[in-house]
C-alpha cells in the first residue's frame, strides 16, 4: 500500500476541552470540583494540614497540654546529640539487618520450590500467604506465646533436643531476634508471591539453553535467575526497607521497646515521646528525621538500581 492513499490520522480532540462559553466553563469547573473535592477535602484536612502542623509542632517545645513554646530548630539539634536517638536508629537498623536477609532468603527459597508444576501448588501458596493477611497484633501475640521463656512450646521443643532455650523477649539480647523472627514469619509469604511472579516471568528457554551448554544448577541460579529476578528483588528491598524503618506494631505488642530499651525502635520512640514523656515537639522532629532517612535511603536505591537491576 502506498503512503499517499492512507487516510489521515483521526484528529485527537480530547487532549484539551473544546472552546466554551462562560456558562459552560463554569459548569465544567463545577464538574471537576464534584469529582475532585470528595478526595481533596479529606486529603487537605487529614494529611496536608497535619503535615504542615507536624513541621510547626516540631519547632516547639510542647507536652500537648500547656501552650506551645517556640524553640526553632532546637528540637532537631537536641535530638541529634541525644543518646536515645542514636539508640533508636541503631535498634531500627538492627531490626532491618536481621529481618531483610531472612525474609528475602526464605521468600526466595519458597518461591523457587513453588516455581514448578506440582500437585497442590496453589494450596501451598495460599498457606504461605496466610500470615500476610493476619494482623500484626495477632502475629505478635501468637509469637510472644510460642517464644514464652518458661512455658512456650519453642523452648520446650529445644529442651527435647537438649538445648536450653533463651529468655527470648524477656532477655535484652534475644528480644530483637524474637521480633525479627515473628516479622520474617509474617512477611515470608508476601515476598514469596512477589518473587514467584518474577520467577515465572523468566523465559524457560534461558535455563534450557544454559543446561544444554552444561551449566550447573548453581551457575544457572547465579547467572540467569538472580539477574533476571533483580526487578522483583529491587521492589522487595525498597518496600521492606520502607516498612522496616517504620516497624512499630509488633514491637509495641511484644516488648513495648524493652527489656531495658533493647528494642526501642524509632517509631516506638516517637510514640513514647509524644504520649508518655510529654515531648510532642521533639517527637514530631524525630518523625521528620526518620522520614528524611527513609526518603534518602529510597532515593539512593532508585539512583543505584541502574547498577544492578536488569529490566531486560
Amino acid at each position: 500500500m502506498s503512503l499517499t492513499t492512507q487516510a489521515p490520522p483521526p484528529v485527537k480532540r480530547h487532549a484539551a476541552p473544546p472552546r466554551r462559553t462562560a456558562g459552560q466553563r463554569w459548569r465544567y469547573a463545577g464538574t471537576v470540583a464534584i469529582f475532585l473535592l470528595p478526595s481533596l477535602v479529606p486529603l487537605t484536612l487529614f494529611t496536608l494540614i497535619p503535615m504542615a502542623g507536624s513541621l510547626w509542632v516540631s519547632l516547639h517545645e510542647w507536652d500537648l497540654l500547656q501552650p506551645m513554646r517556640w524553640v526553632g530548630l532546637a528540637n532537631y539539634l537536641e535530638l541529634l546529640g541525644e543518646e536515645e536517638t542514636r539508640a533508636a536508629f541503631l535498634h531500627t537498623l538492627y531490626f532491618i539487618a536481621g529481618y531483610l536477609p531472612l525474609v528475602y532468603a526464605g521468600g526466595l527459597g519458597l518461591a523457587m520450590l513453588l516455581n514448578r508444576a506440582m500437585k497442590g501448588r496453589n494450596l501451598f501458596r495460599a498457606i504461605y500467604f496466610l500470615p500476610v493477611i493476619t494482623s500484626w497484633v495477632v502475629v505478635a501475640l501468637m509469637w510472644k506465646w510460642l517464644l514464652n521463656p518458661a512455658s512456650g512450646i519453642v523452648n520446650w521443643a529445644l529442651g527435647v533436643i537438649g538445648v536450653e532455650g533463651p529468655g527470648w523477649w524477656t532477655d535484652p539480647h534475644w528480644a530483637m531476634p524474637s521480633i525479627i523472627l515473628a516479622s520474617a514469619w509474617k512477611d515470608l509469604g508476601f515476598v514469596m508471591i512477589i518473587l514467584l511472579a518474577g520467577l515465572q516471568a523468566i523465559p524457560g528457554e534461558y535455563h534450557e539453553a544454559a543446561r544444554v551448554d552444561g551449566a550447573s544448577a548453581w551457575q544457572r541460579f547465579r547467572s540467569i535467575t538472580l539477574p533476571l529476578l533483580s526487578p522483583s528483588t529491587f521492589f522487595v528491598v525498597v518496600i521492606s526497607l520502607i516498612n522496616g524503618f517504620q516497624v512499630f506494631d509488633q514491637v509495641h505488642v511484644m516488648t513495648g521497646g524493652g527489656p531495658g530499651g533493647a528494642t526501642q525502635v524509632a517509631v516506638e520512640q516517637v510514640y513514647k515521646m509524644t504520649f508518655e514523656y510529654g515531648r510532642a515537639g521533639a517527637a514530631s522532629a524525630l518523625s521528620w528525621l526518620l522520614f528524611a532517612v527513609v526518603l534518602m535511603v529510597t532515593l539512593i536505591q532508585v539512583r543505584g538500581q541502574r547498577k544492578w537491576v536488569n529490566y531486560g
Partner: peptide, 17 residues
C-alpha cells in the same frame, strides 16, 4: 508526595485536630 509521608509524622497534629 503525600504517598511517601508515613503516618507517624501526622500522628501528633491529627490527634490535636
Amino acid at each position: 508526595a503525600t504517598l511517601m509521608v508515613p503516618l507517624q509524622v501526622l500522628i501528633v497534629p491529627l490527634f490535636i485536630e
